[in-house]
Amino acid sequence: MSKPIDARRRRLILGLGAGAGSLLLGGCERISSDPDTQRVLGSAQWLTRAAQRALVSRDALAPQYSLSDIAPVFRANGTTDPNNPVYQGYARNQFRDWRLQVDGLVENPKEFSLDALRALRAHTQITRHDCVEGWSCIGQWTGAQLRDVLAIVLPRPQARYAMFFCADPMDGGSNYYESIDLRTAAHPQTLLAYALNGETLPVAYGAPLRLRLGRQLGYKMAKYVMHIQLVDSYRSFGGGQGGYWEDQGYAWYAGI
C-alpha cells in the first residue's frame, strides 16, 4: 500500500529527524560558535524590547522595597577594586579631585565634581538588583537622576544613546563601558548613585559613582563611571555592540 510519494516523504522526514538530532547532540557547540547563529538568535532581543515597550509604560517604576528587605550582605560583582593607578589616586584622596565628564552630542559639555552631583536633587530608592547570573539583592541607593544631569548639559536632537566609560580595566585591555538609550536615561529610577544603604558608595560597589537602572539587569549598571558621552550610535566604540559584556555576546537589551 506504500506509494512512492510515501517513500519519499518517509526519507524526507527521516532526514529531517536525523538533522534535528545531530543539531541537538553533535553540532550544538559549532552552531553556537557561528556568528550568523548568534546574530539571528540575538535579534530576538529587539522583538522582546518592542514587546516590553508596548506592554510597559515609559515611566512605570520598578518595585520599591522596604528597609527590612535590604540584603544584609549585598553581593559585589564584577570588578571590586579597579587595577588602575589613576583611579587609585582618586580613591586615596576620597575622590576630591575626581570629575565626571559629560560631553558628546550636547550643547553644554560639563565636568561635575562629586559635590556638584550631591548638590543636585537627591533621590533615594530601595530597589532590587538582578544579576544576569540569576541572583537578586535588594539595596538602598541614593544619587542624582541622570535626567537632571542631562537637563544641564542639554542633549542635541541627534543624541540617541548615553555611553558610560569606566575606570576599571577589563580582560582584553580596554575599560568597562556601557550604553543605554535616552528613553532609559530619562526614567526616574535611572540614577547616578553615590551612596548605598546610606553610606558613601564603597569601592567594591563602584565608587564614587555608578549607574543604577530600575528595569534592566546588573551588567548594564556601569560602576566607576568617569565619563558620559552622548552619541547617535554605539557602533564605533569597543567591539561595536554597545558595552563590555555585549561585546562578549550578551544582549544589549537587558530588560529580561
Partner: peptide, 19 residues
C-alpha cells in the same frame, strides 16, 4: 546548551526559542 559554560549563548538560545 551550549555544552561548555557559556551563559551569553545560553540566554540567546533561550530567549529566541521562548518566542
Amino acid at each position: 546548551l551550549p555544552g561548555s559554560t557559556w551563559l551569553a549563548m545560553g540566554r540567546l538560545w533561550h530567549l529566541f526559542f521562548a518566542w
